[in-house]
Amino acid sequence: MKVTPVPVCVISGFLGAGKTTLLNNILNGDHGLNITVLVNDFGAIDIDSQLLAKQEGNTISLKNGCICCSLQNDLVFELQALLSNPDGPPEYIVIEASGVSDPSKIISALKYPQIRDVFQIDSVVTLIDVQTIQDLEGDVKHLAMSQLDTADIIVMNKVADVSKADLQRIHDDWLYPSARVIETNYSDVPLDILFSLSGRSKALMDSSNLKHEHSHKGLFHTWHWKSDQQIDVTKLRSAIMKLPKDIYRAKGVFFSDAYPDERVVLQVVGARQEWSKDQYQNQDRQSQLVMISMKKEVDMSAIQEQLDDCVLGSIAK
């Protein structure tokens, strides 16, 4: 029996980068999800007191979820244990990586064969404190590189505290071509970008066939692309690598004669593109791609052209 994998959001960043603020924003958010949070130790977190319900053993119960202080043990075992929770598996998991540990270890563990079918990485967010990042040296600098490397989305936090020029320097010194960056203060990250499952994020992805739509008080824009013809998947994969950097999420299904009984599925979360394929026997073989940006003016003409260029011709019936 195929189970629906539990989505996992991993938050990394140094102490003081704003992880706890983000965590509080998440726990206070109206995403409608019951969230289980895994942290390294309770001492390092400072959860809004009105959210707390009770603390028992290594778990703090919250009004809309719980926090387990258990990352000091083996993450794989901890995650497996969550699945056998008598109240059922968690709806959504947020892992707050310790400020001193390498988040790539968490990401690797989530892909181990024993758990990769039951958990799915929804997003990996790395917060950077723009006030301090330029001063890092040695092992701490190495760790920052690993945090940035692992990130689907990089949150440059506290941007109001530095000049435009300094901000640009951080971009030049630290970021990479495929980086998806959100500049914020107070870790104010739109949760619809972080969570694929939140009500609005789902609504955005599943919405109608409009070519271009904007919603959520103008914060998000979506673009749709579709084709009834078969697709050159190899070409498509390199086209998707060139998505505009303002696209934070995308989701698509594609059909090709190379995969006659399957459909190719794409999930884009920030800088990460996740391809998969699954069995598909249905007659309806329309390829579709929906993309979400956070900026109003995104030049989609180039990507439109590249996507059109992946169309091979009519699908064999």
Binding site: V76, A109, K111, Y112, P113, V264, E274, W275, S276, K277
Partner: peptide, 23 residues
Amino acid sequence: RDPGNGYIERDPLSGEPTGILVD
């Protein structure tokens, strides 16, 4: 097959090893 506590990174569509071997 992937060993326990680690995995062979593969191309998601072809299944071919990418050359990255984790843990």
